[in-house]
Design a protein around this nucleic acid. Structure first.
Lengths: 144, 144
DNA sequence: CACATGGAATAGCCATGGCTAAATTCAAGC
DNA sequence: GCTTGAATTTAGCCATGGCTATTCCATGTG
């Protein structure tokens, strides 16, 4: 039954990977959004983050503490939120990936509305390899 | 600022949708896996589910109680797990969607290995519309 | 300068989904 | 038919990510 056990291990790895992607989703969503707010309004306030994510403000406060602890942002009490270099890097990567996934979905024929909704969930599960495939597809579509 | 508020509401909806998809992911993973085990081995034991998902067995037990409460499976103490009609339906839908997503990724040029890993995460976030687009793409690819 | 208002912080609750450790039950083999 | 080993159940812990209600503070305005 060694073969079966090894097989289980391979399958289990997909699930483990999906689970760990899930843990990162929120972090990426927050950082991407914070970057957007800073770029658009010069600052990222908790109320605005909460409104855009559709959650309550204390939920955001709790999450920001975590992001702060993990070195993605800096906070000054009663002041705004700032991205660290690392936080900015993650935000940029997320943003790029998000943009590519959404554009790809549109390119294969999904309506812009649905592409926007689906991309929000899909983006976090797209590996580097798949992302590159999407990019090449977009380039070829642009040429044609 | 009414425009901005409405805009926030629209954006927030994507995130809410992604969050509720996340809640369903586990249910779908379990039901799909249980269906596989029953089809392959005639029964679905907790130890096997645990091994395939890469989690501890009591974690599975807890989840099965929830699936039972929600009417997706039936359990007899110390015996196997059985899918209800509803559970079987969800499993079939998941399985089909999973298969299409994985095949689609392969069709656009992603390696089979990566396609398998990414599909595990992506499948839960693909709407009916997007799935149909993927299917049409596969049909066209088959023709060519 | 005082104070009202709105954003931020804090406290404390709940559900989910992981885990380990221990008790229980079933079933298989002697 | 007993006993032993494996699987299931149960108990109880932890972290995460939601929430409401409340308190605190900073700022703009009268």
């Amino acid at each position: 039954m060694n073969e079966t056990e090894a097989d289980d291990e391979v399958r289990a790895e997909s699930f483990r990977q999906a689970r760990s992607a899930r843990r990162l989703e929120l972090v990426e969503d927050y950082l991407e959004l914070i970057a957007d707010l800073i770029d658009d309004h010069g600052e990222a306030r908790q109320v605005d983050i909460a409104a855009r994510l559709g959650v309550a403000q204390p939920t955001v406060a709790k999450m920001l503490r975590r992001l702060s602890k993990d070195g993605f942002i800096t906070q000054r009490p009663y002041r705004g939120v700032f991205l660290t270099e690392e936080g900015r890097a993650v935000a940029e990567r997320s943003r790029t990936r998000h943009r590519i996934v959404e554009a790809f979905l549109c390119a294969v024929g999904v309506s812009p509305e649905t592409a926007r909704l689906d991309a929000e969930g899909i983006e976090h599960h797209v590996s580097a390899e798949t992302l590159e495939v999407f990019e090449r597809f977009l380039e070829r579509a642009a040429d044609a």
